[in-house]
Design a protein around this nucleic acid. Structure first.
Lengths: 344, 344
DNA sequence: ACGTGTTAGTAACTCGTGTTACTATTATTA
DNA sequence: TAATAATAGTAACACGAGTTACTAACACGT
C-alpha cells in the first residue's frame, strides 16, 4: 500500500556517498568542501527518490519543532461572533509560512492552561495566545521561565510581548466623531462583559472622548453586551427605555450592533435621523447593514501577521523591547451616523 | 534561562531503575510485570521532574505524528466571506483533541499541491482538505497511494472519503419553500463562480425544485455571485433590470444575499412584499438582516467534527466504505419570504 | 538436587537526522 | 624530496523515545 518514504540513507546509497555528505549537501552547509560532481549526484538521487527529510528526526536533533502554536482561549460563542478572528488566524499562518514554520491550532475553552504542554512536550517552539485571561497566573510564570509567548490583546500590568490595537484611542476616536456631529447624549454598549480588558479599554476611550467634549460620563449610559446580536438587542432596548434625549449610541462590536439596530428599528425610531449608531470592528458585512454602519476598521490580518512575526523574531533569538506592538485602526464613516438636528 | 526539560533518562535515574522500565510503566504496557513499589517510585519521580515525553522522540520511533493537517485551499476572500468556516475548523479541532491529536493549520492559496509535503515529511498523519479543486489530479493519485485524506465538500467522479451537506437537496428544499408560497418567477444567484462544485449542485437543486413544481428553468434567471456582498448587489441589479414578473430570488449564500437585499431596497422594492428572498448558510447574523433572512442552516461545526472523526477512523486503520458522509441542513423560515399575492 | 516457571527488570537495538572529529588523498611549497 | 596545506569525504556519536530479546533471582514440585 503505502510505499516506505525514502530516507537520507537511501539517497546516500543511490548516490554512492555517505549519509553525512548527503546531509551536508542538501542542507547546503557552508564551509564544507564537496565537489560539484558529487553535489549533482546527490541532488539527482534525492530528486529521483522524491526525498523529503523526515521532520521528526530533524526535530529530535535540533530540539526545535519549527511549529508555532496558535491558542484560542475564547469561548465558543465568542469565537463564532468574532468575524475578524479568521483573518487574524490567516495572518498568523502567513507569517509562519514565510519563515518556514507550521501553525498548530488549539482551542481551549476549559482546561485553559494546558497549552503549556504544547511547549513542554516540544510540539511547538512558541505560542501565540489569543484571548488571554487575567486570572492566568500560570502564563506570567511561564514567560519568566523563558517560554516564548506573544499575546493577541494585552494583559494589563504584565510585560509580556503583545500585539494589539489601541482600544481606548480607537473608541475615543469614534465617539469624538459622534460628538463632532453635535451629539451630547451618547450611550455605549460594550462588546464583551465589562471584566474583559478590551471592554474596559473601550469604555475608557468612550469616557475620555466625552470629557474632552465637555460631557460628564454617566454610568447609566453604559450597558454590557456579550458578543452576540441578541445581547445588543436587549441592551439597546433597556437604553431606549431608560435614557431620555438619547441621540447616539456607540456599540463596541459590529455584531452586537446589528442587534441594537434591530431594537432601535423595532422601537419605531429611524437611523440615523432619530439615533446615530456607531460600531466597532468593521466586519465584512458592516457596509451592508441597514443602514450601512459607521465603525472602526481593525487591521485584523495585520494583527495576526504582526503577532506571528514577533514570535518568530523571539524564536530567532532576537532580543526585543517588550513594548507592545500597537496597530492603528481607521474610522469608517457610513450612513448610520448623522449630524444631530437641534430639534430632538 | 530555559531549564532543560526532563527526559525519561532523568526519571529513570531519580527512580533508580532503567529507562526501559520507565517507558513500560508510564505507557502502561500490558503484559509486563513490574512491582507496585517500582511503579509508584517511577510515577513519583515523573511528577517531581514534571516529566512530559518529548513528542519528537516518540514520533521518530512510532512513525506517527499524532497530528492531522487542516488544509484550506480557498482564496483569501473566500475564506473571509465564509462565516461558517471557523465553526468547521473548531469542529475539526474538537474531534482531533478528543483523540489526543493536534491540528496543523495550512492555508494554500497558491502552490496548491504543496500539502503533500506535510504528509511526506511526516508532519501530519493525514489531511482534511477544505475546498478541493477539480483540477487537482495530484490529489486522487495521492489517495490511491494510500495517503489518508478526507475532503470537506465533494469531488464529483472521485471515490475519496468526504463529508458534505447535500447541496442539491438543500437548494431544492428552500426553492420548494418559495414555490409553496406561490412564487413562479424565481431567480437564483450562486454562492460562487459556476465552475465550483457547490455552485453547480445548488443550481441543480434549484432546477430540480422548479421542474417538480411544473416550472421550466430559464438560464437567464441564474446569475453568478462570488462570495461577496458586492457580487450579490451587482447580480441582483441585473436580475431586476432583465427579468419581468420576478417575485422571488434564491441566493445560495447569506453573505451574497445581503448585497442582493441592498440592491432590491435601492431599487425601491420591498422585501418580502414585492420580492421574497431566501439565502443559504444561516450565518450568525442572518436573523438580523433587514428583514430577517429565510435560509438553510448548515451544520458547520458538525461537518468539521465529522470530517475529523472520519479521518481519525482511517488513521486508526478502520476499513470504511467510501460513501460520502452527508449531513442534513435545516430550512429556517424568517420574514424575508412571504406568500405571493396574486397581484404582481 | 534438579529442572521448570514465574517475577522483575535490563541491555541493546531502532527510528532519521544533524554534527563533530577525524582520515585519506592530492596539490603546493621550501 | 620532504614537509605542509588544501580538498573531499566519512565514521561515530547525539537527540529521546519505544520495543525486542534476554537474564538474574527466586519459588515450586518431584
Amino acid at each position: 500500500m503505502n510505499k516506505k518514504r525514502a530516507t537520507s540513507q537511501d539517497v546516500a546509497r543511490l548516490a554512492g556517498v555517505s549519509r553525512t555528505t548527503v546531509s551536508f549537501v542538501l542542507n547546503n552547509i557552508q564551509g564544507v568542501k564537496i565537489s560539484e560532481a558529487t553535489r549533482a549526484k546527490i541532488h539527482n538521487a534525492a530528486r529521483e527518490l522524491n526525498y523529503l527529510p523526515n521532520v521528526s528526526g530533524r526535530k529530535l536533533v535540533s530540539g526545535k519543532s519549527n511549529t508555532i502554536g496558535l491558542v484560542l482561549l475564547q469561548s465558543f460563542v465568542q469565537v463564532q461572533a468574532d468575524a475578524n478572528l479568521i483573518n487574524v488566524m490567516l495572518g498568523v499562518e502567513k507569517a509562519a509560512s514565510e519563515f518556514g514554520y507550521h501553525v498548530l491550532l488549539k482551542h481551549l475553552e476549559k482546561n485553559v492552561s494546558s497549552y503549556t504542554h504544547l511547549i513542554r512536550e516540544n510540539s511547538v517552539d512558541g505560542i501565540i495566545l489569543s484571548g488571554p485571561r487575567k486570572d492566568d497566573e500560570n502564563l506570567i510564570r511561564m514567560y519568566h521561565e523563558g517560554f516564548p509567548v506573544v499575546l493577541m490583546g494585552q494583559l494589563p500590568g504584565s510585560d509580556l510581548p503583545s500585539v494589539d490595537i489601541d482600544n481606548q484611542k480607537a473608541a475615543a476616536e469614534i465617539v469624538s466623531h459622534l460628538i463632532s456631529l453635535n451629539h451630547r447624549h451618547i450611550a455605549m454598549i460594550t462588546n464583551a462583559p465589562i471584566e474583559f480588558t478590551s471592554a474596559q479599554q473601550r469604555i475608557s476611550g468612550y469616557q475620555e472622548a466625552l470629557r474632552a467634549g465637555g460631557i460628564e460620563p454617566d454610568p447609566a449610559y453604559i450597558k454590557a453586551g456579550n458578543y452576540t446580536p441578541e445581547s445588543g438587542r436587549l441592551a439597546m432596548k433597556v437604553l431606549l427605555e431608560t435614557i431620555p434625549h438619547l441621540s447616539a449610541v456607540f456599540i463596541a462590536s459590529d455584531v452586537v450592533a446589528i442587534g441594537a439596530i434591530q431594537a432601535i428599528t423595532d422601537a419605531g425610531l429611524r437611523i440615523p435621523q432619530d439615533i446615530s449608531v456607531a460600531g466597532f470592528d468593521d466586519i465584512p458585512l458592516a457596509g451592508y447593514f441597514t443602514p450601512p454602519l459607521t465603525t472602526m476598521r481593525l487591521p485584523s490580518s495585520e494583527l495576526g501577521f504582526a503577532a506571528g512575526k514577533q514570535l518568530l523574531r523571539i524564536l530567532q533569538g532576537e532580543k526585543l523591547e517588550t513594548t507592545p506592538i500597537i496597530l492603528k485602526s481607521d474610522l469608517i464613516v457610513r450612513s448610520s451616523s448623522l449630524a444631530k438636528e437641534n430639534s430632538r
